[in-house]
Design a protein around this nucleic acid. Sequence first.
DNA 1: AATCCGTGGGT
DNA 2: TACCCAAGGAT
Length: 251
Amino acid sequence: MLQQTPVSRVLPVYEAWLERWPTPADLAAEPSGEAVRAWGRLGYPRRALRLHACAVAITEQHGGQVPDRHADLLALPGVGDYTAAAVASFAFGGAHAVLDTNVRRVLGRAVSAREFPPASLTRAERDLAEGLVPDDRPELWAVAVMELGALVCTANGPRCDSCPILDLCAWQRAGRPAYDGPPRRGQTYAGTDRQCRGRLLAVLRDTDGSVAPERLHEVWSDETQRTRALAGLVADGLVVERDDGRYALPG
DNA sequence: AATCCGTGGGT
DNA sequence: TACCCAAGGAT
């Protein structure tokens, strides 16, 4: 849930989710469409599908227990290098470089004197991060660096006056120079397939049972784009077309 | 390697 | 008002 989504928006959904499905087996026993519905408006609903698939994999292949090894975590649906490292470290105390957007920014500033990290994770960043993971209580290091980035060393308006490592920050020492790398393109959204998919799925999510195609027309009039987006949702497994031509979340 | 994939709060 | 971007992953 936290992938590309702020903590404050995740928390209420997370609480409700765990109350309804306390264990992986509980979630695995449900149709994937229920996960998509319960995902609500967190965004990137394919994550809901993958989390459901993840619960199935844990139930069927790991005896219902979340695996503790990085390689096993990495093999789970929707779990990439960051999430595998985060779970292996936070939950099991493993020594891994937990490289999320916050950590990349903190290390980029404190060590490399750059306001923002490169657009994509570089080998140099990984080498640096791995070299900093301590042997003793590595999970404390991981959570500390991440929280520092989330609460103090923020992307905009960093609270440098209350930073605990200000005296060893290379970016501070360099006079906090502004970012001068290639422009990081912003995501336009209005009129995109993403927006269209979001509108279509919202109709399905907020409706019990199935909906007629006409209901989808109401939220996106451009037929070419609507058809393409709907086909994409079906291909992703987020939506199913029934024999009677109506649409529904996967049952 | 570059693109695609949602949503909403902050500025 | 328009940006910016947030505990990324899959292809």
